[in-house]
Computed example of a mutant assay.
Amino acid sequence: MTFRLRLSEMPAQAAACAVVFALLPSCASVPLQQGTSLGSYAGMAVSGGSLTKAKLRVNSPAVLAAQTVRIVPTTVENAGGGSFDAKDLALLTNAVDRALCMGLSDRFNVVGQNQPADLVVHATVTDIVATNRAVAATSTVATLGASVAFVPLPRIPIGLGGLSAEAEVVGQDGSQQAAMIWSRGANMLTTKARISSVGDAYSLSSAFGADFSRMLVKGQDPFKTTSSVRLMQKIRASFGSDPKDAACRAFGPAPGIKGAVAGQLGLPPGWSDKGAAASR
């Protein structure tokens, strides 16, 4: 038997969906996952926002006095116990590096891997909460169908993924100048469903990179300050334009418009993101 939803029934259908969604968690809960990559975990203060959990510390005078920074490629520490595809993990870690480079270039001169720098940044993915691909596919189909009917429909709040990561900054003498432990789960309103086990973690990688780089740019807790981001520069970079610092080209261009379309269609990250540049 085939059922057809008449236009007059759409408001009632939307209301019913809203009631069901209200009874379910609207975002994935991802605990802070402390790894072993930081030189020190001492003196970190609890912070974070409405969606993000974090602990951090920053030596403001040392960070604000620095002019150059080098990014060591992000690594993965036992995230998922080896259950994720290596190519997906490479895209995820590179997306973290790309976001860090974009954010740090707002104030610092980002230099290449073989060049000296005042500060050295290294991030580690400590946990990935897998996205349920079947639910993501169902959610994408439902959302696209609702869009055609002009009925806004949030993502199905089941099988949401998440990301936990940590990063630190060391000075030329090897001493830690800033550190952060960070976690965030996908939510049904702002995180587009991607049919990939790392889809949500990939989508959240830019948020982690932005939070950590903002802490260094401002020299203070990024969750308690407003950002003075060079908006046009970041808009151009997000749409695939050349980054301000040549060193950032090592992480490849942002997926741009193709990536935005892929996100709307629920396609895996690899459909639009080609990863690091070949010369890296």
Results as ranks from 00 to 15, higher is better:
Gly43Met: 10
Leu104Ser: 05
Val135Asn: 01
Val76Ser: 03
Leu144Tyr: 10
Thr131Ser: 08
Val148His: 12
Thr36Leu: 12
Ser164Thr: 04
Arg107Glu: 07
Phe150Gln: 15
Val96Gly: 02
Thr126Ala: 08
Leu89Val: 06
Val135Pro: 03
Pro154Asn: 05
Ala123Asp: 08
Thr68Val: 06
Gln113Trp: 12
Val20Ile: 14
Val125Gln: 01
Ser50Met: 15
Leu153Ile: 12
Val20Trp: 11
Val30His: 08
Thr143Gln: 14
Gly161Trp: 05
Val72Trp: 00
Ile158Val: 15
Ser29Phe: 12
Asn78Pro: 01
Val46Tyr: 11
Ala65Gln: 10
Thr131Phe: 02
Ala66Asp: 00
Ala123Thr: 06
Gln115Asp: 15
Ala165Ser: 09
Gly161Arg: 02
Val76Met: 06
Val69Leu: 03
Arg57Glu: 11
Asp97Cys: 08
Val111Ile: 08
Ala28Trp: 00
Pro31Lys: 05
Phe84Gly: 05
Arg155His: 10
Leu91Asp: 01
Val58Lys: 00
Lys87His: 15
Leu51Cys: 11
Lys53Gln: 13
Ala22Ile: 09
Ala66His: 09
Ala146Val: 09
Gly39Ile: 09
Thr138Trp: 13
Pro152Phe: 03
Ala149Tyr: 10
Lys87Ser: 15
Ser26Val: 11
Asn109Asp: 15
Leu100His: 04
Asn114Ala: 14
Thr75Glu: 11
Ile128Met: 07
Ile71Phe: 01
Pro25Trp: 03
His122Met: 12
Val148Ile: 15
Arg98Ile: 02
Leu23Thr: 14
Lys87Cys: 11
Asp118Gln: 10
Val63Ile: 12
Ala95Lys: 05
Thr52Lys: 03
Ile156Leu: 13
Pro154Asp: 09
Leu100Met: 02
Val19Arg: 14
Asp127His: 09
Val96Tyr: 02
Gly35Leu: 04
Lys53Thr: 07
Leu91Ser: 08
Val72Gly: 08
Asn59Trp: 09
Val46Ile: 13
Leu38Tyr: 05
